[in-house]
Nucleic acid binder design. Sequence first.
DNA 1: CATGAATGAGCTTTCATTCAT
DNA 2: CATGAATGAAAGCTCATTCAT
Lengths: 191, 191, 191, 191
Amino acid sequence: MTMPDKRNDIIQGALELITEKGFHGATMAMIAEKSDVAVGTIYRYFENKDVLINALYHELEEKILGALRKEYSAEKPFRERFLLIGTTLLHYFISFPVHFRYMEQYHNSPYGISLRRDQLLNKADDVDITRQLFTEGIIQQVLKDFPLAVLFDLAFGPLVALARDHILGFIVLDDTLITRTVEACWDGVKR
Amino acid sequence: MTMPDKRNDIIQGALELITEKGFHGATMAMIAEKSDVAVGTIYRYFENKDVLINALYHELEEKILGALRKEYSAEKPFRERFLLIGTTLLHYFISFPVHFRYMEQYHNSPYGISLRRDQLLNKADDVDITRQLFTEGIIQQVLKDFPLAVLFDLAFGPLVALARDHILGFIVLDDTLITRTVEACWDGVKR
Amino acid sequence: MTMPDKRNDIIQGALELITEKGFHGATMAMIAEKSDVAVGTIYRYFENKDVLINALYHELEEKILGALRKEYSAEKPFRERFLLIGTTLLHYFISFPVHFRYMEQYHNSPYGISLRRDQLLNKADDVDITRQLFTEGIIQQVLKDFPLAVLFDLAFGPLVALARDHILGFIVLDDTLITRTVEACWDGVKR
Amino acid sequence: MTMPDKRNDIIQGALELITEKGFHGATMAMIAEKSDVAVGTIYRYFENKDVLINALYHELEEKILGALRKEYSAEKPFRERFLLIGTTLLHYFISFPVHFRYMEQYHNSPYGISLRRDQLLNKADDVDITRQLFTEGIIQQVLKDFPLAVLFDLAFGPLVALARDHILGFIVLDDTLITRTVEACWDGVKR
DNA sequence: CATGAATGAGCTTTCATTCAT
DNA sequence: CATGAATGAAAGCTCATTCAT
């Protein structure tokens, strides 16, 4: 369980620092200091800075998917499952603003772009819960007849924007507002 | 008449290069070469790289608002106005993918963050067409009773996500799909 | 008489600016602005920055020698002539602190060094009043039997140091103090 | 034991190079090469070029004061102590022409000026041997009744000028000449 | 394995100088 | 002659990466 402890220290330090200062604002020296390790040590766990940045991303991705899987239950009615995924996601973003900010920054940087291009080819991720849900929704004719990507965007686009506004302090989200917003998203995708 | 021609050359060159390589990947030397100017010339028009980056952003912002204002007509029915703004925006994003990518990158970087924080204080922008439209919609009880920011996110969140997917090649948007998606957004915000 | 007016403007502007900011702190652009001419104009009067700096020096040197010649009178007794030269010099330094500072800066920079090396070869300057005075003093056995250079240093070293201290605000010189100090210098060189 | 060896290498290299080429003529790259270090290494020991330049100055100041303290003896008669300080100083300047040239250059540059202004405020340095000596001389009425600064200038002004002339090759100083000159300085300050 | 001093390629920025107007 | 926009070589400085301890 207590795998390479230092690796986690580094991941944590890098995460916080990069979120605050950006990929280039956070130097390896700063990350090392924040993580309480020597600069050289980082290179024992990550081949170079790019590898660290990408590893960080996948680490977070895994955590989010985990959170979704934990709450999800194939038993429940479709609408309920949709709402659950939406609220869980939003809650996660708000609870871990640093994770959220990091992923945002990653997605809109050359790093994220090249990743996307890769994913486009390896149409993997069929394990993905949301993909399954939406595919089912289309087949069952519960959802509007759109390409999968469009449905994703209709459903999650608002949530991401909302999380950002909350984290930046533009609005304050509470449980009611979260629920109501996810329901509004449902209005957007439902047939 | 031939106003600062070089200034525009630089803006154009910087825009393309930064969009492709990111803020740090695009060096001043590269920008100069792409713009067919000497490095020093950039500094006659922009105090430093940061200023250039921010100027670029405001330039684009102005262009987008211009595009919106051009199409907008206060005469038309509310729903139509909403759909118009949505489709115009999406069309703009698709027609100027470089502008779109730049703004995305900007928003999710330390530059954009500090800008947002400023805007939070100077709650200006009442000239803003969309703000006016949404405020009217709330008062007229046409839109769901949400804070303004939430309505913004419900309406534009999907469009931004969609534009990104299109530009990255995940989907191909045509006029029908654009119209239908914006209508779906309408479903999300309408009461 | 009103020779190239611009040339004088430049000389004046450069003098003040360099005194304040140093040779490198004063850029050609700054000098141009201060002199109310275009940058290019400077190059009509001075081949380049180095030439300007050196011309400036010789201009000042000429002024100082002029001031000395003006007061000097071969008729007066030796001691009186010595005192006159000393006080005239000190007065000049204090009246034109900018000139003084410039020359100091010049002497202690690579510019001044190379100049000195030149002067060493062309043992010119026999027209020089002080040289004549001191040579006479040695021959007449009024002054201590030292090489000329040593006598110069004994006589003028304190005056230069004093002028600097005054200009920097370490002390405030008045006429009495000036006179007394030059007399003390006399004690140093007289046999 | 082998304390920051590199720091000394840098100090030595910078000293020689700056003395030869001036503050701006000596680039960081040149200094690095002369010191047999990488450019970046300099920045591990000195925050930036200005800091290096100032550190260099204080290093030399300390060495000179050390040399004076080493020779000085409060037991000896006043005149003897004065002569000792004068000759020691002159010997030091001649033995370490590079040190001397550096300090001259420093004093007559924006660096030195701001330092002086600081010292003007913190009237510290009472530990200073020469200050003690001169103060005593005034009280004992051995020295002329001048402000301290004037006495300093009368005593050291010639020595500095002389050292410069020697280093530049205008004259050649030997022990006799040194002694005689310092005695002439004594004539200048003694009552 | 961990360390952090050392490295140097590469970045942003400045500024003396030129030359078309 | 005067102008000042344009130039680009060269400066100061940073920081990812290495490697001897």
